[in-house]
Design a protein around this nucleic acid. Structure first.
Lengths: 194, 194, 194, 194
DNA sequence: CATGAATGAGAGTTCATTCAT
DNA sequence: GATGAATGAACTCTCATTCAT
């Protein structure tokens, strides 16, 4: 029953996601997942050999959903600056939602699993985001909304700042104002740079 | 003999440091430290109750040494830009030395130990660094070496980029060139801003 | 399979009982029970979290059996004096069987676990016995077999003497004759009191 | 320095006594005693090889003091009944002072150390007390204060009741009134028995 | 005599993983 | 497929006991 199997697998992944959000990655045991899912120990092993495999699936799911959500929220008449602002706002929301984001778990997972360059999800996501932002800056510059001589450099700078904010928010208390300040700073760099 | 005790404690901390560098924080057990030190199980418990206590001591040691090293390396006739470059170079070295830096262990430790704002070492270090960089930028601007309208904002931006680079280098392979590129980007922002 | 589980739990309890009889309560470790049962360390923890939980179950089992045994042994045509004598004889047997009674373990358990008044098994057992003896004395007095002005006081006196004998037999060698003598003494108090 | 040695030994015993009162016997470790005494680990081992040896000394000390105290408190003109009442009152005080009596520790000690009949302190104390009470009852009977046909039996009965009360008070909550009731009951047996 | 650092055996506990049903 | 009892390795932590100083 491949159909039923796939559904059960999906159910496990979705349930496990909640667990990873709450407890991070390393902390989570097979038992935690089993308990959360209300299935049998052996049942879980039928689909996944260890927490790592579960988490990889969670990551995949997470990414799919994230892509969907972002694209749906872009208004049609949005300018590049609007879209960038929207993106940064979304990132801010995400990085401040400490307890219910997968950030910590994700970092923990990649600490332990030094995934080789090509397949590294984190890297791919980062580069995809850089690419999108670069395009936005280019468009914005073309339209006169932004001024920027090195769109790629600026895009990368923005992404590293976001990454810095993300890890900061996971390892120490960081006020919302601090995040706003940093976002404002990088956005201003795109306007003022007169 | 408090003298001998202190020496042994220091020996444990220094040996444990190597272990934490290699394996991170969560991975390390009391047994790992015991084995690395070549002492008895009970012997370790004489000095530390758990890996957390050992690691806190390691962090303290690390910080002391870091402060010493940096200050010693500043040439007398260095300009603010020289010093900032030196600082960034040191940071680059540190963040690229994956296997033998404490970064991963430190992040793992603070994932688990949500230290309250005031005493959070990471936060204190971050803010201290921001302060130093801000001063350098102010001096550099006064001396005409830099041009910067928001020294504090620039300093923070630099530090968040560094933090982003740090976590990036721990969770995915990051080429030296990428680090250089980011450092160059932020430095240029201080010069060109014409 | 809850059926199988229940059987295994019972097996553990019955095996552990022997261990507690031999070694008392505090002395017994989880490993002792594991070894005696021939099961795995983890296997025991599946059913009980600590020796205390095992012992509580042992006590429960013990009590059930004790109740059964006593009731079955009362002949139909027995007079109150007969029944009381039977009860005392049973108590005597119990308190003299040092090595194979749970007395020591029970005392040790209640030394450590100051169970609140209401749920205290020892107290409940004591009071139940007092009640039974009181009834017997009342019946015996009504039938002219005994003479007693304070049946409840006499019942309590008997039970405290038994308790004293019990602890005495556990902490020092006590000859059978001494027990007989005490039992005789309290029985005579019920007859002679002319 | 035999003089100094003896003093230190005594100091240890007196300090350890407090520890045993609080924690019982089995619970107490050499470390507990060392800490309470403020001496070195090795220092304790110079005088005692294990907690058992310390406790034996504590018992000896306890007994000496008990004898002294009791004899000093007997008024000159006291009748046998007065003295017996005094003795029972003292026993009552002792057995109700749960937390600060050595009873629990003593029972625990004799659970573990099955001392052979002759040297068993508990037995000797019990028999000494029986003897004293017997004498009192005899005197009291001779003087017409008591009526008792079997002074030895009565004395033993009293002592076993006391023993029963003692263990009861250690293993379950026992109200003062219950003790009074039992004491009254045995005393009345000596008077009324008309 | 006295100290207290050091040892190592052993108790408690958890968890990934297997396997008969 | 699915179950969950069972296993045993591994980890944490404590304590009696020793021994160099």
């Amino acid at each position: 029953m491949s159909e039923k199997s796939a559904q059960k697998k999906k159910y496990i992944v979705e349930t496990a996601r909640k667990v990873f959000r709450e407890k991070g990655y390393k902390q989570v045991t097979m038992k935690d997942i089993v308990d959360a899912c209300g299935i049998s120990r052996g049942g879980l092993y039928l689909y996944f050999q260890n927490t790592g495999e579960v988490f990889e699936e969670v990551l995949r799911l997470e990414q799919e959903e994230a892509d969907d959500v972002f694209e749906q929220n872009i208004p049609k008449e949005a300018t590049p600056a609007d879209i960038l602002a929207l993106f940064l706002k979304e990132q801010k929301r995400e990085l401040l939602s400490r307890e219910c984001s997968l950030n910590k778990a994700t970092y923990e997972y990649f600490f332990e699993n030094q995934v080789s360059s090509k397949e590294n999800l984190l890297k791919r996501q980062f580069e995809a985001a850089v690419h999108v932002i670069e395009k936005l800056i280019q468009e914005g510059t073309a339209e006169g909304e932004f001024y920027c001589e090195d769109p790629r450099g600026a895009a990368r700078n923005i992404m590293y700042v976001l990454e810095g904010l993300k890890i900061a928010s996971q390892t120490r208390e960081i006020p919302e104002a601090a995040v706003d300040r940093e976002i404002l700073y990088v956005m201003q760099g795109l306007f003022l740079e007169e």
